[in-house]
Design a protein around this nucleic acid. Structure first.
Lengths: 209, 209
DNA sequence: GTTTCACTTGACCGCATGGTCAAGTTGGAA
DNA sequence: TTCCAACTTGACCATGCGGTCAAGTGAAAC
């Protein structure tokens, strides 16, 4: 972006504080929603005075916006797995793995994104209409090609993608419900089983393996 | 419950007003979250003075609680489809149909539920631990029986149920994203296609049809 | 050493919001 | 007709919140 020339020490402090605030904000926004979150609580969690938050992020909304964009870009990176794959077994299998890993490592971000979309995407509507639309159409083309090449069953690419998104993000967004039914947090083995189950049903469902 | 003896005319007014308020509250809570929703906005949407809301629902939280319980009971009714079915093709197929129909007819309620669970289920935790846990264990038993009878592939019942919940509710919770990608609201035909896609992938994925 | 400027922070402000209240109004029992 | 309880409603209050501000502090440039 447009980083002004800053001495390295200062810049390090800035980056560290911004990361601290973003991390705290992600958690608080996820657990309380935008309206329920307060700058004071975020400040306390970050270990900074409230006024300091407003120094780095002028308004609550600008802070929120940064949090939402962070998770979105993490997801976009997971897209890489989709592209270079020779067929659906590898491409979709790896995409499920990648998204499940993100659900495990960034559950807060996923929840913030979900809430944002449920509220009508007031701050990232433009992303939906540009970046996400392009990305989705691109993958849909790949899926249609695989179908044409006889590598998978003829399913609607969009509804398949919705199923992938829904299922993988469910493990982040509804983690509380899952953990309640599971009698506690998911272990490493539980996560492996979850990934295997999802991949098994989806891949067999689209005629692969 | 414990309805006091009330003259029929009065009771009709009461029921009508409560329904009016609940409907408005469901929409506002879904679109703004608990913290973002205001009693004033709900009152305006219901066409009643704010003080009147507090007459029927003493606090904002009690109103919210009623909204959450409403959608939960609607979902429980959809469970009926699961029980009497002779096998997974009919049982799970009908369950998907039922839940997709609910997503279409009650998108607001689904969003409120999703937000509630994402926030750690502060007001319905007991429901998760009792009603939902029992329901889930019951269906898991049915699925295991179907597997034992060779009627479907051996998949983990819980992860299968999570996939069903995630996928069907996605069409309600992420309706805004779906409509953006779709270029507008889903038509009757779109919904039919969605149901067919979901059923096709899931049923084939568990070795049915 | 001096100056400068990014950064820190406690105190403060205006406003919106959930909730209250007391004065009505209405429907129905006697 | 009388009376009571259910219901309605505008005005009001206390609180918590996002955001501001002005007085600091300390690291780097000269």
């Amino acid at each position: 972006m447009d980083e002004p020339n800053r001495p390295p020490r200062r810049q390090a402090i800035r980056q560290a504080n911004e990361a601290l605030i973003l991390s705290a904000a992600e958690k608080v926004f996820a657990e309380a929603g935008f309206g329920g979150a307060t700058m004071q609580v975020i400040a306390d969690l970050a270990g900074l005075p409230k006024a300091n938050l407003h120094y780095y992020f002028p308004t609550k909304e600008s802070l929120y916006r940064s949090v939402v964009k962070t998770i979105f870009h993490i997801w976009l990176e997971a897209a890489e797995t989709f592209d270079a794959a020779p067929g659906p077994a590898e491409g979709i299998g790896a995409y499920i793995d990648a998204k499940m890993d993100i659900s495990r490592r960034h559950p807060h971000g996923s929840k913030v994104w979900a809430t944002e979309v449920m509220h009508g995407a007031p701050v990232i509507q433009d992303y939906l209409e540009t970046t996400l639309r392009d990305w989705t159409e691109g993958r849909a083309r790949v899926i249609r090609r695989w179908i044409a090449e006889g590598k998978m069953a003829p399913v609607d690419p969009y509804h398949l993608l919705y199923m992938l998104w829904a299922t993988t993000q469910h493990y982040a967004d509804f983690s509380h419900q899952i953990e309640t039914l599971n009698g506690g947090p998911l272990s490493d083995a539980d996560w492996q089983a979850a990934k295997a189950s999802v991949k098994g049903i989806v891949l067999r469902g689209i005629g692969v393996v």
